[in-house]
Every structure is written in C-alpha cells, then in structure tokens.
Write a protein that binds this DNA or RNA. Structure first.
Length: 267
DNA sequence: AATGGGACCTGCGCGC
DNA sequence: TGCGCGCAGGTCCCAT
C-alpha cells in the first residue's frame, strides 16, 4: 500500500524523469478512475500540457501541468505508476510523453483515482489534511497527541490528524517505540510519545531511502520493487518470532484494520 | 467526540 | 486442476 515513503519515492523518481515533458496523448483504458469529468473531456484537457512540477501532500501525488491546472493522483491501496514503453496489465490511464515513454497509472482494484483541478489546495482531502510528519518536530507532535482519547494506532493513521502514515508504518513505529497499538493517546506519557515520534521519523526516512515497501502492488516507476520489506519488524509477521524477544507476533483487528504487534515488547 | 459498519473494487488464498 | 467464497484495505459516508 502506498504510504508516505512510497508516494515520496514516486515523486522523487518522477521529478528526475518526467519534469518538463509534454503529454502528447492520453489513453483512457478505464474511465472509472477519472473522477469529476468524462474520459474524453479529461483527455482533451490534459493533451499537450507539460509536467511542470511533481508535488506530494500526505499520500496524494500532484502533477502540476501549468496554467493553474493540477493532476491529482491517489493510489489508495492497489495503485502504482510505471514509466515504460507500452501499456501494461492493469493500466487504467496512460500518459504518452514526448520522449516516447508512457506514464502508466495502474490499479488492480480500481479504488485509486485521478482528478483534474485548478487549485489542488481547495480539494477537501487536501484542505482537511493534518500536518506532514517529516519536519513537524517533537514538541508539535506531542501537543497533537497528548489530549486525544482515541487509540494511538488509528490516530496515527488518521489523515486529518497526521498526513501520510498508513497501516504499515503506524504498526512499525509502535513496535519500535514499544507501545501497544490500542493504548489511548492521552494515556501515553510524554517520554513514550517522544519515542513514537523519533521512531516514526526514522522509519519513514529509512523507508524513503529504501524506495518504499512493495507490500501488495506498489512498485517503483521502473517496475522494481521497493527494498523496505526485509526491514519490516511486525507487519505481516503473524506467529513469527519477535526480533527482540522471540515471542510470536500477534495479529488483531483494531479500528477495523489488521494490526500486528509483539504482545511482550509493546506495553 | 469516538466508534462501527457499509460501500467502493477485484486479485488472491483457501477449502474442497 | 478447478471452482466458489470471502478477505484485504484507504477513504468517504452514515449511524449510534
């Protein structure tokens, strides 16, 4: 699932490969992913535009097409972007560039979406989004979390509260910090909140440096897998021995989401 | 304010 | 080998 590190990886790679490239044509294979306008209207509006910038906000990727036009892409759970010579399997929309390459928007489950908008900051998803964790700072992080009575894990994942953290990295950060995922945020002491913050930041940075975790369908834009999976400590490790204490890792549904944790290391 | 459930969607793993 | 079933999950929306 593409979370902050995966989307940031895509952003960095797109900046290196498609900046200032012109979109010569748009191939709409499945118009369901295009929201707000029809596939043909989308094609007309995007054709001949140039990719001026690539921006990320939380898990949202934004391609600036100039003249107050933005392509807003959300990969949700099963989407990925791939730059190659043709249209690949699960491609829903292909952007044909003036260098002969095609930027494929792929999605196996068709839950991802593409929007075209004049001002992306006015989109509800962006407007209501919480702060970016990287560069937030320890003090602000603690202030955010110290009074909420919600369980810490769903809170870390709440995009309106903190941007970009999803199911994988929330669990990894809590394991690193030694905090049980169902603890209420306001009942976690300052020291522990500090630990959660430093863990989260270092994990996100490390995951970006490893170009993301290819859980499910996520790939780098050249199709290679991200390299973070071997570094995952709890995610999808049910019944396997904890790396710290050898106890079997447990899986439990918290806030309707699958959650892995070490019953002994996490207090 | 917090929590729970359904809807969206389809590949995949499971049981037989 | 093949079939049918139900799970998985980010976000939005509604209900309690």
């Amino acid at each position: 699932m593409p979370e902050l590190p995966e989307v940031e990886t895509i952003r960095l790679q797109l900046r290196r490969s498609v900046l200032n490239k012109k979109i010569k044509d748009v191939i709409v294979k499945d118009a369901r992913v295009i929201k707000g306008i029809s596939g043909s209207a989308f094609k007309t509006k995007v054709k001949n535009k140039t990719i001026k910038d690539v921006i990320r906000r939380g898990k949202v990727l934004i391609l600036e097409l100039g003249s107050s036009l933005y392509l807003v892409i959300h990969l949700r759970i099963s989407g990925w972007l791939r730059l190659n010579k043709g249209i690949e399997k699960f491609c829903r929309v292909g952007f044909v560039l003036n260098n002969g390459r095609i930027l494929n928007f792929c999605d196996s489950r068709v839950l991802g979406e593409i929007k075209l908008i004049g001002d992306y900051e006015k989109l509800p998803i962006i407007k209501s989004m919480g702060p970016e964790p990287l560069g937030l700072g320890k003090a602000k992080f603690i202030k955010l979390f110290e009074k909420k009575t919600t369980k810490i894990k769903p809170l870390l994942m709440d995009q309106n509260f903190l941007a970009g953290v999803g199911n994988i990295y929330a669990q990894e950060a809590l394991f690193c910090a030694g905090v049980k995922p169902e603890r209420k945020s306001n009942e976690i002491d300052k020291k522990e909140l500090e630990k959660i913050y430093t863990c989260l930041i270092s994990i996100l940075r490390k995951a970006i440096s490893k170009k993301g975790a290819s859980v499910d369908t996520y790939r780098q834009i050249d199709g290679d897998e991200g390299e973070y999976i071997p570094l995952l400590k709890v995610y999808q490790r049910q019944a396997k021995p904890c790396f710290k204490c050898k106890s079997p890792i447990r899986r439990k549904s918290i806030g309707g989401r699958g959650t892995y944790f070490c019953p002994r290391c996490q207090k």
